[in-house]
Design a binder for these strands. Structure first.
Lengths: 211, 211
DNA sequence: TGTACATCAGTGAACGCGCGTTCACTGATGTAC
DNA sequence: TGTACATCAGTGAACGCGCGTTCACTGATGTAC
């Protein structure tokens, strides 16, 4: 009973193409700035063969969102497991930024295409972020007085904050140790504010607020 | 005393180029997807003449950030003035989304390039957002117990939320009236949470929080 | 197992196209006298 | 005011280049008998 060699090779090339695209993205280049030819070249196939796998770069991008979202979700799940006995916010944040640092292209891709690139891709990323937030909400231990709806809303904000800060983090990139410390501090502060707002926001406040 | 006709014409073309670039951006195209030739064409000059004004598209982009940030800042300032006697958050939000709707390309450009495009442009946008947040902080009436530093931090979050939601708003674009209502509702809720978190966050909270 | 045919991922050449950039130029505007 | 020269925004042609896409093809792998 031989397994299908041809099919396996195709899967391999498929993955090579996605990996190639991710690798070719950088500080200055997103999906939209990549050419089909350079991606094919990097993946070790001829440009025409690209079409055996995707009908356009946009389609490759959509596949890449699926892939990246899955990886990020499992990374975060893992981080939550590891941090199970360390509930302090700032140590969780430490883990998170470590992961971002070790998976630059992944986070860069998602951050960049979240508001740029193709509309379909933006929408897919937003859906994926919702999914990640839902998973986070299920794992989050909030006071019993907080409804699941509020927990979910908080987790959506947390995911939003995390991705935005990850994007800023990637631009600091190794150097600027002082700036990175500041960014982490601000992230902790911002997330703490989300928790405070969620937990203390049950009662109506009356203040002169104007925006 | 004749004014300088040649210089005025140059300024005009300069503005035409920036306007052309902004107009050519759309749901699917950011600065990085525009070609020098199409921008020059739209502005009514020959490609080679582009170089009389900018040495690259990136430089045009940087000029565009200055321009857009200034416009958005004055729009927001205006909105705050108009809303001076209507302190309710949701009516301010209403004004804001109206402005976004009437200045799509402006907000689209900033949202898109904030995390995508060229690094220099990202940095310039972030600086501009800081400036806008500072101006907002000065105008914001917070309880006396809140320090200016905390007010500033809140205003930075508000600006961040506003731009992120503006970006999502632009993708709903006219249709999906129900989704737009939901988006506005979520924005109000999110901003309210920022205020609650800021005002009630003075005292330390102790809860089992894990991220 | 061996043979004959089908499948199909990847090839390689070719195409027309728009791109960024260069260059010598033009002619209206500005300046010095 | 009139003249002679300088400036310089915009021109138009040319360049070499990488692009996406098409096509008939190849040859290893898979399948039917």
């Amino acid at each position: 009973m031989k397994i299908n060699k041809r099919y396996q090779q195709k899967l391999k090339t498929h993955q090579n193409l996605m990996f190639a695209a991710l690798s070719l993205m950088s500080e200055e280049k997103g999906l939209g700035e990549l050419s089909l030819r350079e991606v094919a070249g990097e993946a070790g196939i001829v440009p025409a063969a690209f079409y055996r796998h995707f009908k356009s770069m946009e389609e490759l991008g959509l596949a890449l969102v699926d892939d990246s979202a899955e990886k990020i979700a499992s990374i975060l799940k893992d981080a939550r497991k590891k941090g199970a006995y360390r509930s302090a916010l700032h140590s969780s944040i430490g883990y998170f930024f470590d992961y971002v640092s070790k998976n630059r292209s992944l986070f860069r891709f998602i951050s960049r295409e979240r508001n740029g690139g193709y509309k379909k891709i933006r929408e897919k990323i937003r859906t994926a972020m919702e999914t990640i937030a839902s998973e986070l909400a299920l794992d989050m231990r909030m006071p019993k007085s907080i409804s699941f709806a509020d927990t979910l809303f908080a987790s959506q904000m947390i995911v939003g904050v995390a991705f935005q800060r990850a994007s800023e983090f990637l631009d600091l990139d190794g150097k600027d140790h002082q700036d990175i410390r500041k960014l982490k501090f601000l992230t902790v502060k911002q997330l703490r504010l989300v928790f405070v707002g969620t937990i203390r926001g049950r009662k109506r406040i009356r203040t002169k607020i104007k925006v």
